[in-house]
């Protein structure tokens, strides 16, 4: 009935790209942003988040098409999906979702390995260590992707091995579920 063998080639195989290429590309973007914003790291963080958001709103479609998963029943399931499937297919790592808050609305993602940050050493200017969140794009990606599946979230890094912390940890908080819009009124 339906020719299933005609699915686009990239649907069936896992796309592969050299990890170092990704790392270097991302690193160059961050370094360039730092240069463009004259080391105003707050602005760089914000810009990275914005870029991530734009990636997220598209990436979610790819995720849904690839995995054909159904809607998550609760936020815990969502966290599981993010770490075990989302990060797995796009970055090939599996962060741990942990440190749940009592109300089940916020959790931490601990990134044991961060492919974006290989080779990276933050600039030694005394400020970058305290102000720059090198992998901040990931926060934006999560925010964008979850917004497309009706979850308004807030995400930020709380620690980063690049800064000398013991782990790389991102805090994700569910703000609310966004309701589907009603069809426009006939008038």
């Amino acid at each position: 009935m339906v020719k299933s063998e005609t699915f686009p080639a990239s649907r069936n195989r896992v796309e592969k790209v050299n990890a170092e290429l990704v790392t270097l590309t991302y690193g160059t973007i961050v370094a360039q942003l730092c240069q463009d914003y004259e080391n105003n790291y707050a602005q760089v963080n914000q810009q990275l988040d914005k870029m991530g958001y734009n990636i997220g709103v598209r990436l979610i479609e790819d995720y849904l098409a690839k995995t054909a998963t159904a809607r998550c029943n609760n936020f815990r399931e969502t966290a599981d999906m993010i770490s075990k499937i989302g990060f797995k297919i796009f970055l090939n790592t599996t962060p741990t979702a942990t440190n749940w808050s009592a109300d089940g609305k916020s959790f931490s993602l601990i990134l044991d390995e961060n492919p974006l940050a290989d080779f990276v050493e933050l600039p030694d200017d005394g400020r970058a260590q305290d102000e720059l969140w090198f992998s901040n794009i990931l926060c934006g990606v999560l925010r964008g992707a979850l917004e497309m599946v009706q979850m308004s979230i807030e995400a930020h890094f709380v620690s980063d091995t690049l800064r000398g912390n013991d782990s790389t940890e991102m805090r994700v908080t569910l703000l609310k579920y966004i309701d589907d819009e009603l069809p426009p009124d006939d008038d």
Partner: peptide
């Protein structure tokens, strides 16, 4: 190679990396 792969390293400049 790893040191010059640091995005904050400027090619042709001195290598200051502590690592």
């Amino acid at each position: 190679v790893d040191a010059v792969s640091n995005p904050f390293h400027v090619p042709g400049k001195k290598i200051t990396s502590r690592t």
